[in-house]
Amino acid sequence: MTAGWTHRFASINGLDVHYVEQGSGPLVVLLHGFPHLWFSWRHQIGPIAEAGFRVVAPDMRGMGRTSAPRDHREYDVDAITGDLLGLLDHLGAERAIFSGLDFGMFSAYDLAHLHPERVAALIGLQNPFINRTDKPPLTLAAESGREHFNHIHYFSEPGVADRDLDAAPRDFLRKVFHALSGDADYLVSWRHPPGTTYIDALPEPPPLPWPWLSEAELELYVENYSAGGFTGGLNWYRVGDLRWEQRKAYVRRRIAVPYFFIGSENDIDLAVWHGDEPLKRFHEHYEDVRGVRILEGAGHLMQMERPREVNAVLLEYLATLT
């Protein structure tokens, strides 16, 4: 699985950035969310590189082996967009095809709004667009959190989630990965009252290995988050209101670069976090939608759960761009 991977470090936008690279050709950048690492793209890097692309998968700001500023304000739109621009400059690339999940994909959407000349195309996984809410996200999370457990509200208080997750990284990671998969019901966590910890709210998973995650693979995540802690990843949530304000600048603008989407039928984000019938609203956000595919069975972590199917669609989309 590791054949062809090269680990690199670079000083980018004031950070020490770790990334993995393989292949040559048009640049494809894969961006992860929380609580993930570059390693969440382990099944995609090789096949995309073998198809004739240069693939780069960084550890995003605050996670993995990339620097983690303590101040949550250092995770705003300007900072993260600066990371991506700096990465492209470091790689000597005028532009790239970006794909990602969660915060990673939202960062690519920001880049496409602010610097479309640096984005050749977007391939969104699970998260179809940046939500346009009437209230700031932490306000909405607090309202929900007064009724039942809400992970964003739980994450928003500095020091609380950090303490709980840093004390039990393996328990948290195995529970959250299972809960987000197509084999579980994430909404079980909402049945718990306010004040519950995330680890206690998540359902108990079956013993490892699972069909899509081994003990050794989980251990790599545990090792990284044990070393760096969870605060960097949690800061992506804590800066949510600031990013909400910054994104008002393009709230009614559509992204013009070519856009593709891959979702799955059991994804909690598509079911809950993007409003009613998000798959019918691409035209509100993009001028050039070129492909939409929904995969059966998989949950939120489909690039790990169903790598063969995800890779087939990714390579189909990428072939149209070359």
Rank of each mutant, 00 (worst) to 15 (best):
R65P: 05
G275N: 03
N127S: 08
L279Q: 10
Q22F: 00
D166I: 06
W212R: 09
P58V: 04
E316F: 14
L234I: 05
L84G: 02
L125E: 12
A68L: 04
F155E: 06
A271H: 07
I80W: 05
V28E: 02
L208K: 01
P209A: 11
H178G: 08
A68T: 02
R70N: 10
E219M: 07
V28D: 00
P205N: 03
E74R: 07
N131E: 08
T133E: 04
M304C: 13
T2N: 11
L27I: 05
N224C: 13
M304T: 15
I152W: 10
S24G: 06
F103K: 12
G182D: 05
Q126K: 14
H72C: 06
P205W: 03
E223S: 14
T322Q: 14
E217F: 09
Y154C: 02
G104M: 06
A121V: 08
A179K: 09
V292Q: 07
G291I: 01
Y186Q: 04
W38K: 01
I130H: 03
G46K: 11
R8G: 06
G46P: 03
K248W: 14
P307Q: 13
V77K: 06
H178Q: 08
S67A: 01
H151Q: 12
A216K: 10
G25L: 12
G14L: 03
L180Y: 15
G159P: 10
L301C: 15
I123D: 04
G297C: 07
Y317H: 08
D71F: 00
A57P: 00
A96S: 06
I255D: 00
R61K: 09
D102I: 07
V20N: 02
D76W: 00
H7F: 12
K135V: 11
E284Y: 12
D269M: 15
F98T: 03
A3E: 13
A121N: 13
N224W: 08
A298V: 07
P69V: 00
I123P: 07
K135H: 12
S40R: 05
V160D: 07
L173N: 08
I255H: 02
W236A: 00
M1G: 14
W41H: 09
V55W: 01
A179Y: 06
L208R: 01
A121K: 07
D59V: 04
W236E: 05
M63C: 14
G23L: 02
I199Y: 00
E305F: 05
L138Q: 02
A141G: 05
D276C: 08
H151P: 08
I123W: 06
G100L: 04
Y250T: 11
P278T: 03
G299A: 10
R70T: 09
E309M: 10
I294S: 13
M302A: 13
D16Q: 14
A108D: 07
N127C: 09
F177A: 15
L218D: 01
A112C: 04
R243M: 05
Y237C: 01
V17T: 04
D269L: 15
I294D: 12
S226I: 08
I80P: 09
M63W: 04
E316N: 13
A249P: 12
A3C: 11
L114G: 00
V239F: 03
L125R: 05
S24H: 05
Y186W: 14
A201S: 15
A227K: 11
I97F: 10
P26R: 00
R252I: 01
G25D: 11
F177V: 15
F39D: 10
R163M: 03
L87I: 03
G297S: 09
A57R: 02
